[in-house]
Every structure is written in C-alpha cells, then in structure tokens.
Design a protein around this nucleic acid. Structure first.
Ligand code: MN
Ligand code: MN
Ligand code: ZN
Ligand code: ZN
Lengths: 143, 143
DNA sequence: ACATACTTGCAACTTTGTTGCATTAATACT
DNA sequence: AGTATTAATGCAACAAAGTTGCAAGTATGT
C-alpha cells in the first residue's frame, strides 16, 4: 500500500494539483495490475461519490501530463494504466499490451526488442515514427 | 472500376446475399485506398439513401463473413477495410495498419515479418495467439 | 489571509450505437 | 414462373457514452 504523501509527490512530479479525486484515482491505478476503464474506476468509488465528468477529466489530465496512458479495447473502450517507469517493475517506455481473449483484461507487458519493423511496399514513403504491438492470447490467470 | 457481376461474385464467395446496400458498400470499400468509418460511408450515400442501421448491419456482416476487417482509431471509431487477398495488391493475411498522424487516415500495409515477438517477463505464462502492430507517422500524401 | 487560476459537480446536450418489429426482398425448390 | 422460406431492411424508440457551459468550490503561491 502506497502512502498518501507518496501519491501527493507523484502528482507534484507531473505538475498536477493535488485533489481528493486525483489521489483516489491514482490509488486505484497504482493498485491495479491491469488497465482500467472509466467505468471500472467509477464503480469502485461508491462512498466518496466521484462524479463521472470529474473522472473523465481526471483521466484526461493523467494522460496529458504523462502520468498515465490509455489503450483502446476491442469493444472500443479506453483502458487507463500508469506508466510504470517509477512504480512497480520498470517497464520499457515502449511496451506491449497483452489482451487476454478470455477475461479481456489488458496487461502492460515488457517485450524484448526484436528488430525494427519494415514496410515492404517501399515505393511509397511512409515515415514510421512510433508503433504499437497488440498481443492476443490467454493470460496466466486463465491458463 | 469493378463490374457489378464481379461484386456479386465476391458477395457469393462470402455467403452473403446480394442486396443493393451490400453492393453499394462493397463498391465504396473496393475503391478506397484507406479504411473507412461508418460515417465516411454513410455520407457518400446521399442518393440511394442508405439507412444508418442497415449500414451498421452491413459492416457487421462483412466483418463476420471475413470479407472485411475493422481497425480502431485513436478516437475510438471503427474503420473498415476489405481483406485484400483477392482485390488489388495481395496483402499478407497478417498485415499492419499505418496511421497517418497528419490526416489520421489508416492504410493497410504489407510488412516483412521481422522475427517473432517475445515477452521477456517469462515467469508468467502468457500464450500469445496473435498480435497486431500499429504504426504511427506520416503518410505519402502528407510528406 | 488573499488573489488567482484550476478543479469540481451538475444539468443539458450531442453523438453513437442498439433493439424490436412490421415490411420487403433474396434465394432455393418445385 | 410461382411459391415457401429465410434473411435483410427501414423506422422509431431507446440506451449508452461522452461533451460542454457554467456557477461554486478548492489548491497553491505570495
Ligand atoms: Mn500500457
Ligand atoms: Mn487492415
Ligand atoms: Zn485472462
Ligand atoms: Zn496522411
């Protein structure tokens, strides 16, 4: 369990004002091993009554500041996860998303860089600036 | 320009009944070099007055039958494109999606297979069944 | 403690996609 | 060709998801 002042420190590092909504959302994201949807988070907030719009804006602020990133699911939802560069295991900046076909949870997973991609149809000049891998299969819990 | 009977033949191959809505949508998809959204297609159909629900169901039918596939965009829309195995250039079954950061169009592009991905955190047993690359950058038209 | 700028919560709204159902049309079979 | 069967269509009503504007509240630096 991460302390209150640790979370405040994280928000400061990302130039985010410390509010109870942000501390609450940050806590949930830190404790989750999978990426979470707006609805996942909202439903965990029964008592402190987190407003849905505030949550949308909080998540936007987290992404915009670089504290979190978002992944689109198969059914067109956004899932949010922290950049783990500091918290927990240290993931690559450019990591992969593992989508479990069974439970549909999405994990941020480290990958070993296995050679650059190359577009073979090279009479066309595509400039590749970044790329995303998306892996599908079965996660440990569902094996 | 692809003929009417050619399009009918394609629909037959995918066990889809031939209707004017399907012929119309197929024609649009064949002629496009980028993946198209529901709205892209609907707005091209001013005269034959294509119903929005019919279009949703037509696109679903195309995907379900294997004639087309869909790609999620950055802003959580679906874009639809044919599998090019027969039409136009022959793409790999497992191709990549090139997202232009300028115009946001998405192209289906062939890639040279550059070694299998490997998840390095292997005390956990993830079974990778398939993967998706997503490339970001600038397309030929925007260079 | 004060000023300032940012965040919050609410309601109204927009956008997008879904469902049920009556009608119409496509295909297969005489 | 005519008929039966089954699927597709169009419409309206609905539902879900996300956005916007604004007034009130709160965090932060001085
Ligand atoms: Mn991630
Ligand atoms: Mn494609
Ligand atoms: Zn799983
Ligand atoms: Zn472009």
């Amino acid at each position: 369990m991460i302390s209150d002042s640790q979370r405040k420190h994280i928000l400061h590092r990302f130039r985010l004002k410390v509010t109870s909504a942000r501390l609450f959302v940050l806590d949930i994201l830190i404790r989750s091993d999978v990426a979470l949807s707006h609805n996942d988070i909202l439903s965990q907030a029964r008592d402190p009554q987190l407003d849905k719009v505030t949550l949308y804006r909080t998540l936007d602020a987290f992404v915009k500041s670089g504290l979190a990133h978002k992944v689109a699911t198969e059914d067109r939802n956004w899932l949010y996860a922290l950049h783990h560069n500091d918290q927990k295991e240290s993931f690559e900046d450019d990591h992969a998303h593992f989508v479990c076909d069974e439970c549909e949870r999405i994990y941020c997973v480290p990958v070993v860089p296995a050679g650059k991609l190359q577009i073979s149809n090279s009479d066309q000049s595509f400039t590749v600036r970044s790329h995303e891998y998306r892996l599908h299969g079965t996660c440990p819990q569902c094996q």
